[in-house]
Design a protein around this nucleic acid. Structure first.
Lengths: 141, 141
DNA sequence: ATCTTTGCAAAAGTTTTGCATATCC
DNA sequence: GGATATGCAAAACTTTTGCAAAGAT
């Protein structure tokens, strides 16, 4: 699983006939700068910092566009708003119930093996999975 | 982990000074009849079948009440509405992306061991986790 | 009688849709 | 020109809140 650069994602989209608008470029750059999870509100703030004006409709639509193409994926923590992250570089999260700190869980072969186990036991063809852990971080516990 | 009956849950609540209203009784009976996941809309339909009239506010409030007491828990599949299930009898789900079939994943010691591993690796005190698998069921794949 | 629970209406919050306009190639 | 992308306003949905009334013990 290679880690993509914002530039390569954008280039590929352009090749496919899609346009490199400032909103698209900004969002891809933000989401591929690191592996953090962003709400739509956060994405809009970050776009503003880049001096990119974009309506929330545009942000929702662009995120949808990027999800349909498997570039971005969404994660839900159960607080009512979805969070988005780059879809390559697959990993999972621990969320602190007190301070909302989100950290990645280091890659774990055992974690990934589970998909096969579950497939064998249920007969489902597993396309994706979501593992989230909730607890107290080192400072809060 | 014992599997509770609706009656025992209700009895305990009564002991604690809470009232056994028809809405409370109906919701606990519905949620403890099996281990399926229910949206608020579904809960309201099921209440109606039991000839129990309850406002959606009441259902939301009652679910909140039951969650605060650890009787019910919520699970998110990412489709915008929360689903609720009995909190005892812990297990996980596979969801079919095509027909929305939800099945339980058979108990798996390896699955549960992960919580400890994650705790060790991140330093978090893990309070709960959520594992959901999405794919195609036997009929749809 | 008292504390719990309810219903109704309204509000809040996130996400989606319609449509006309603008933009890129 | 023709497809893609955008903004604005309005709608759609789920969930929450305020408050007065009703219900349970």
């Amino acid at each position: 699983m290679t880690t993509l650069s914002a530039a390569s994602v954008l280039e590929k989209l352009q090749t496919q006939g899609f346009r490199l608008t400032t909103a698209r470029r900004g969002l891809v750059e933000i989401l591929f700068a690191d592996d953090s999870l962003r709400t739509v509100a956060e994405l809009m703030t970050l776009l503003k910092k880049k001096r990119i004006a974009a309506d929330k409709t545009t942000v929702y639509r662009e995120i949808g566009f990027l999800m349909e193409r498997g570039i971005v994926r969404d994660v839900e923590f159960g607080d009512g708003q979805k969070r988005y992250e780059r879809a390559d570089d697959h990993h999972h999260h621990v969320v602190c119930a007190k301070c909302d700190l989100v950290e990645d869980i280091p890659a774990d072969a055992e974690l990934e093996r589970l998909e096969k186990r579950v497939s064998e036991r249920t007969g489902f063809t597993i396309l994706k999975h979501s593992f989230e852990f909730f607890g107290l971080c080192r400072k809060c516990s």
